[in-house]
Amino acid sequence: MKEVILLTGPPLNGRDEYIEEALKLAEKESYAYYHVFEYLKEVGKERGVKITRKNVLDFAISHPDLMNDIRDEAFEKIRMHIDNSDKKFHLVSTPSLFRWGSGSVLGFTLSNLKLLKPDRVIIMLDDILSVRRRIINDPEWFERFGKEKDNIKLTTLVMWREDAINHVKTLIHELKKEGIEVRYILQFGIRHPYQTFIDLIFHEKEKPLVYLSYPMTGHEEEYYHRVRGFYEKLSKYFTVLDPGALDDWWIVAEYDNQVEKNPGIKKIRIKNIFDGEEVEELEREDIEQATDILRRQLVERDFNLVDVSKAIAVYHYAEGISAGVISEMAEAYRTLAAIYLYYPFKRRPSPFMEFYGMQNPSRRTMFKNEDEMISAMIEEKEYWAKA
């Protein structure tokens, strides 16, 4: 049986680059990959219109009717290729929605999705500063912002993300009214290992989705090494979704630290969290405007990951109770996901954490040994993976 997976998201979030690298690990899989932009160029050429990466936005905004016709025909070609293919998985990649200047460009409409009939929708996301750096390092896009770093506002980038996600949610809701069921929408951070993406796309039945919950801020380096080691062990058996694969929180934390030290500060200096070297100077006012949206997006994204998962693995290698972890456990309890809690301390946790942490299928217990917890999850998989 064929499965169609729509891979989408905001522009300049590294979607296609990530997918193409990940698919190098998928040589043995039965799949076809459809990059919608390539189809737009092909249809445009047939109609005597040259569509390029540089002109596509301006062309779509100045010739909306023609662009709509080209996009519709591109999706018709993709649908025809899917119908004629003998492959099992069909990956369709295109941006969701993009606002530029006074106009907006849709990656797809409701009629396009009715034709495509996606089984799953995966929204590919990168952290905000990486998106900003991608723009700076892209000559065509940097030129759009007047070749001035200060013109690239975090507020703009978080709204790109907001618009893209809302466009997907709205259309999938409309699809449901039409009787077309999408199994889930998943907000996927591209800092996940490529193998996690491969497992997500191709091996979900054998390796069901598990959300990894852990206190994320204010810990020593050794703590994060332990979390990463646990993630790698768990990933041998499950498709593990990590909230740390999309981390904008450190921007807010660094802002708070610097403002506390110097209340009159105008520029916030932030190091690249991944290389620890490159430093950005960002306008304080811009971070303040973006922060409220970022905080809400973080909560909604983490709840989305919990909601699509069959189980939640809580790695609580910290005695201080995390409000975020408790909230994620409560959300998992609400959605009837299995909950497994690793808490290795003698002191009892809060009664709420204890209550939620004793909801795994066959035994009411918390775990003091992480390997024992993984073994229990494997043993009990047949109970919770089918839920």
Rank of each mutant, 00 (worst) to 15 (best):
N272A: 03
T365P: 00
H203K: 12
M366F: 03
I287V: 01
D72E: 15
S322L: 05
R284K: 09
D72R: 15
M159D: 14
D150R: 07
S102M: 14
G229A: 04
L66D: 02
K381R: 03
D247N: 07
A22Q: 00
E319N: 07
L23I: 05
V308N: 06
G107H: 01
V306N: 04
G44Q: 01
I61R: 00
T109S: 09
A376E: 14
L175A: 10
L234P: 04
A245N: 00
I198T: 11
G44S: 00
Y255K: 02
A318K: 12
R120T: 03
F230C: 05
R191Q: 10
E174R: 14
F37T: 12
I326R: 02
E3N: 11
D292S: 11
L12G: 15
N112S: 08
Q187P: 11
P10M: 11
D302H: 01
I198K: 09
A26R: 08
G103H: 00
K54P: 01
M329R: 04
E232T: 08
M159R: 12
W250A: 07
E76P: 00
R134A: 04
E21K: 15
E354T: 12
V131T: 15
R284A: 07
R144E: 11
K346W: 11
G101Y: 06
K176A: 15
A245L: 01
K310L: 13
G189A: 10
V240D: 07
V240G: 06
R269N: 11
M377F: 00
A313S: 10
V314K: 09
D138R: 04
G146K: 10
L106P: 08
V49D: 06
E278T: 13
S111Q: 15
S235K: 05
P11D: 13
I198M: 08
Y34N: 06
E382H: 08
A22V: 02
A332Q: 12
Y184W: 13
D69K: 14
E143C: 05
E254T: 14
D126L: 04
G244A: 06
L129M: 10
S327D: 09
D86G: 14
N68I: 13
S322G: 03
I128E: 10
H192G: 07
A323I: 09
I378S: 09
V240W: 03
E27F: 13
M216F: 00
I19P: 00
A318D: 12
I5M: 11
N360L: 06
K114H: 03
F367Y: 14
K24M: 05
K310S: 07
K41G: 06
T196K: 00
K169G: 05
P361L: 03
E380P: 01
V168I: 09
Y333L: 13
Y39R: 05
L154Y: 03
L110V: 05
S111A: 14
